[in-house]
Computed example of a mutant assay.
Amino acid sequence: MDGGYHLLGVTLAAGGSLRWYRDTFAPRISYTELMDMAERSQPGARGVLFLPHLAGERSPHLDPDTRGALVNLSLAHTPADITRAVLEGVAFSLRSALEVISAIAPLDQLLATGGGARSHIWLQILADILQTKLIAPKAEEGAAYGAAILAMVGIGVYPNLETALKILPQDNNVVQPQANSLYEAGFKRYKLLYDTLKAVR
């Protein structure tokens, strides 16, 4: 309607991975405590990698049969490392989808919505791995809220998208990316997991 277009990349179990991890391994620990725990590990989770394909995957692998994994575990790893690996694995998955999108439409910032956007550590992990500025708006409704705004433009409540976006609260949390070689190395190893683990399905 305004000359723009929509590109979609999906990690089917993004927040769902953290919920699964908490419900399965730490049911008495709050999400806030999990985030505090993740901060006690270091970027790269001391080598632990998590593949968040717990519900199959859509982007960039259109594969309903792929499954999740925790790899590189040792006796030296702690719950903090594994928790951080889950957060980083979701971020690596989103980066895999973003690489496809960026080749078509380069961008310099993203909106972060949903429950994960309330966590400073997860936002920083995402910004650092995606190497993109993240804006977490006060409106937490996420995709449904965005769809409603587009619909209001479509039916003429607002004349254009720019006018409609003015209804959003302007007080946003902005997270700038920081370069980290551990994340770059981790992402290279993460990209090997899908094809490597396909052989043992």
Results as ranks from 00 to 15, higher is better:
residue 184 E to T: 15
residue 9 G to D: 00
residue 145 Y to L: 10
residue 64 P to Y: 09
residue 85 A to V: 03
residue 37 M to F: 07
residue 7 L to W: 03
residue 44 G to R: 09
residue 201 R to T: 04
residue 164 A to K: 07
residue 12 L to H: 02
residue 92 F to P: 07
residue 10 V to Q: 02
residue 69 A to R: 06
residue 18 L to Y: 08
residue 107 L to I: 13
residue 91 A to E: 04
residue 158 Y to H: 07
residue 81 D to N: 05
residue 132 T to C: 12
residue 121 I to R: 15
residue 137 P to C: 04
residue 18 L to F: 12
residue 141 E to K: 09
residue 90 V to H: 03
residue 201 R to P: 02
residue 103 A to E: 15
residue 65 D to W: 13
residue 45 A to V: 05
residue 97 A to Y: 00
residue 45 A to Y: 06
residue 155 I to D: 08
residue 15 G to A: 01
residue 108 D to F: 11
residue 126 L to V: 05
residue 139 A to S: 13
residue 35 M to I: 14
residue 114 G to E: 00
residue 137 P to T: 01
residue 18 L to S: 01
residue 180 N to V: 04
residue 119 S to Y: 08
residue 51 L to Y: 12
residue 6 H to L: 14
residue 149 I to L: 15
residue 113 T to Y: 09
residue 137 P to D: 02
residue 68 G to F: 00
residue 130 L to M: 05
residue 145 Y to P: 00
residue 160 N to K: 05
residue 197 L to C: 10
residue 11 T to N: 14
residue 24 T to C: 07
residue 188 K to Q: 15
residue 155 I to A: 08
residue 168 L to S: 12
residue 71 V to H: 10
residue 154 G to S: 09
residue 3 G to F: 03
residue 186 G to N: 02
residue 137 P to R: 05
residue 103 A to D: 13
residue 176 Q to T: 12
residue 74 S to T: 15
residue 156 G to W: 10
residue 56 G to H: 06
residue 18 L to D: 05
residue 23 D to K: 05
residue 47 G to W: 07
residue 145 Y to A: 06
residue 39 E to I: 06
residue 163 T to L: 10
residue 44 G to E: 09
residue 155 I to Y: 11
residue 68 G to T: 04
residue 62 L to Q: 12
residue 66 T to I: 14
residue 110 L to S: 05
residue 55 A to L: 09
residue 145 Y to W: 09
residue 200 V to F: 15
residue 17 S to I: 01
residue 199 A to M: 15
residue 198 K to T: 09
residue 197 L to Q: 12
residue 152 M to Q: 09
residue 4 G to S: 14
residue 6 H to C: 13
residue 52 P to D: 02
residue 82 I to N: 13
residue 130 L to I: 06
residue 148 A to L: 08
residue 125 I to V: 11
residue 168 L to F: 11
residue 137 P to Q: 03
residue 47 G to L: 03
residue 119 S to I: 04
residue 18 L to C: 04
residue 48 V to E: 07
residue 12 L to D: 02
residue 197 L to V: 12
residue 125 I to A: 07
residue 54 L to Q: 03
residue 196 T to P: 08
residue 31 Y to N: 08
residue 190 Y to H: 03
residue 69 A to N: 08
residue 79 P to V: 05
residue 14 A to H: 07
residue 104 I to Q: 15
residue 139 A to C: 07
residue 171 D to T: 13
residue 143 A to C: 11
residue 124 Q to M: 06
residue 124 Q to S: 06
residue 201 R to V: 05
residue 140 E to R: 13
residue 201 R to A: 04
residue 57 E to V: 00
residue 119 S to L: 01
residue 71 V to C: 11
